[in-house]
């Protein structure tokens, strides 16, 4: 059955957005990512204008992350304190990132910087996570994981502990200076604004490797943080660009809210390392896809202006 989308000005088989929403919601619940880096290109592939695809995607992420945050909160996997510090940093980073994009556009090489940032960040994050989690799984089997972690923490840990405003994050079981999540949040916020994504796939590794939070709390906290980022983005897109398609968002969120719940249930059955390996594999597949898009001659050499 087809439905006409009033803002996208196109008609779509309802099974497509519901199915895509379900798949992306599943990833949200499993890994704590919004899934914008997967869903936006898929929507464009199915004929949705790029500006509408990006804006509506953020609207459906609001639903999926609400559903996911709720499910994770129920099982005690959301560190609200850490989430708030990261949000403050992310908000500041977003403002800096938007200014950086304006500057890059004025200099005329924005697209090159955005694409390269995308490939490099995805590539580095994917490869690092993949190798680290495979090693971690092997070491756990050998029963030596605890000692290695202790050794690793001493180098960076000493510097972090010397910073002021030390505070305890009970839910995550870690102690950090309040400045650490704020600065890291700002760093992700800058990159997310430059790349035009929610930043979940960057935030998750930052929380795992730099803030040393347990993987299951990372997923819930990341979703909590993404929820607020996407509420802001949805409103700005609707208000300034008029590019949110309400009906498309409803179709997507029918799938994604259910998917997020299923993902959360599945996620609880998997170990932290298994989740990391799976996320790393998805990030690497997306990186390879982008590299192909950049190097193979495109079928069409022009596209509607206004997207990314």
């Amino acid at each position: 059955m087809y439905l006409y989308l009033p803002v996208a000005l196109t008609s779509i088989n309802i099974l497509i957005p519901v199915g895509l929403g379900l798949a992306v919601g599943l990833l949200s619940g499993l890994f704590g990512v919004g899934g914008g880096f997967l869903l936006t290109p898929l929507l464009i592939m199915f004929g949705i204008p790029s500006t509408v695809a990006a804006a509506t995607d953020s609207n459906q992420i609001v639903a999926a992350s609400t559903s996911g945050t709720y499910a994770h909160w129920k099982v005690g996997n959301v560190d609200f304190k850490m989430g708030l510090y990261l949000l403050v940093g992310g908000f500041v980073g977003g403002i800096i990132g938007v200014q950086a994009i304006k500057l890059l556009h004025a200099m005329g090489n924005a697209d090159f910087v955005i694409k390269m940032t995308y490939v490099l960040m995805l590539g580095i994050v994917g490869v690092y996570m993949f190798i680290e989690s495979i090693q971690s799984m092997r070491k756990k089997k050998a029963g030596a994981a605890e000692e290695v972690q202790e050794e690793k923490e001493t180098a960076v840990g000493r510097f972090l502990k010397s910073l002021p405003l030390q505070t305890r994050f009970e839910k995550s079981g870690v102690t950090h200076s309040a400045l650490v999540p704020i600065v890291l949040g700002a760093f992700v916020g800058i990159l997310a604004a430059i790349m035009g994504v929610g930043g979940g796939f960057l935030m998750v590794p930052v929380m795992v490797y730099m803030l040393r939070m347990p993987m299951h709390v990372v997923v819930g906290t990341s979703l909590f943080q993404i929820l607020f980022t996407c509420i802001e983005v949805t409103f700005l897109q609707a208000y300034t660009n008029h590019s949110v398609d309400f009906l498309l968002a409803v179709l997507l969120l029918v799938g994604s809210t259910v998917g997020a719940q299923i993902g959360t249930v599945f996620g609880r059955k998997l170990k932290g390392e298994q989740l990391k390996v799976l996320l790393a594999a998805i990030v690497l597949i997306v990186t390879v896809k982008i590299v192909f898009e950049l190097t193979l001659t495109p079928a069409l050499l022009i596209s509607q202006a206004g997207g990314h």
Binding site: A63, A64, T234, A238, L253, T257, A260, Q261
Partner: peptide
């Protein structure tokens, strides 16, 4: 546009909570 934005967010939040419940 502002009302439309609030409506879109409101529906998304309600759907998320609703399905969660």
């Amino acid at each position: 546009a502002a009302l439309y934005g609030f409506l879109s967010i409101g529906v998304a939040l309600s759907a998320g909570f609703g399905v969660g419940m």
